[in-house]
């Protein structure tokens, strides 16, 4: 299985110091990779850098074997690297339909785009809300819209930054189910999540990030089984038996 997204020796940061201190990550084609770690470990920074919003100070990012370091975010998107930010991930002052149209018009659509039937199956709620302002949607609906936009063209890789943030447990289940369905369509997924248990359940592999470095890279099932790891890295509110005690605010 070849790596559709590979990251080697990545360094990046906002100010004087580096937040990412040499990251190596590899996502195989058709798989789901979840990145977990405590707050401040650099998870969001990593995804932003991969998306091209933050320059890589050192290291290399390759999409389907091709180096993308020099590409601007729009160019990366058109090569097939889609990104859904954690917050402000829809154009709030534009309607649902306009959000989707923009995605279709600018993300390099065409032959690979999913058929309307596929989209309708994944996002049944959206068509009825086409004329609504995206800002007026509920949190869960906005998240779905953000997904739908990212998928309007069939990306090679979909990167999600905390997709379940701020959502109720019921919606969280729905989100992860959608992610799994998207993956079944052939989209490789890289996810950053705080809600580790749920995310790992649908993932193939897992990377644990802390202090800007990779601490562990292992199959998801293996990580799920680690009791010590759970207590340390899977969120503040985990109980010893691995059951989530309730989701803390992101």
């Amino acid at each position: 299985m070849s790596a559709v997204l590979s990251v080697a020796g990545l360094h990046a940061g906002y100010g004087a110091g580096d937040i990412l201190k040499g990251i190596d990550v590899s996502l195989d084609e058709g798989r789901v990779l979840t990145i977990i770690g405590p707050n401040g470990s650099g998870k969001s920074t990593l995804v932003k850098t991969l998306a091209g919003l933050l320059p890589a100070r050192q290291g290399e990012v390759r999409l389907a074997g091709e180096r993308v370091n020099e590409l601007s975010p729009p160019k990366r998107v058109r090569r097939g690297l889609a990104y859904v930010p954690q917050e402000y991930n829809v154009f709030r002052n534009l309607t649902v339909l306009e959000n989707l149209r923009i995605a279709h018009e600018f993300m390099g659509g065409g032959a690979g785009a999913p058929l309307p039937e596929e989209m309708a199956a994944l996002f049944p709620e959206l068509p009825s809300r086409y004329p609504a302002l995206a800002g007026n949607l509920s949190g869960g609906q906005r998240q779905m819209l953000a997904f739908a936009c990212a998928l309007t063209v069939r990306p090679k890789v979909l990167m999600l930054d905390e997709p379940s943030a701020g959502l109720s447990p019921l919606l969280t289940v729905e989100i992860f189910r959608t992610v799994k369905n998207v993956n079944a369509m052939g989209v490789s997924v890289l996810m950053v999540e705080q809600n580790a248990i749920e995310a790992l359940r649908i993932s193939d592999s897992c990377v644990v990030l802390a202090g800007g470095r990779v601490r562990l890279a292992a199959p998801a099932a293996e990580v799920l089984g680690m009791k010590d790891l759970q207590r340390l890295y899977l969120g503040d509110t985990q109980q010893a038996d691995g059951q989530p005690a309730g989701r803390a605010a992101a």
Partner: peptide, 23 residues
């Protein structure tokens, strides 16, 4: 028009516009 929509998108959220493929 796509250009007009893109202008409104950039006005709404410049960073998001980038990752939605708008130059």
């Amino acid at each position: 028009t796509p250009v007009g929509r893109a202008m409104r998108a950039v006005a709404d959220n410049p960073q998001l516009a980038l990752v939605r493929g708008i130059d």
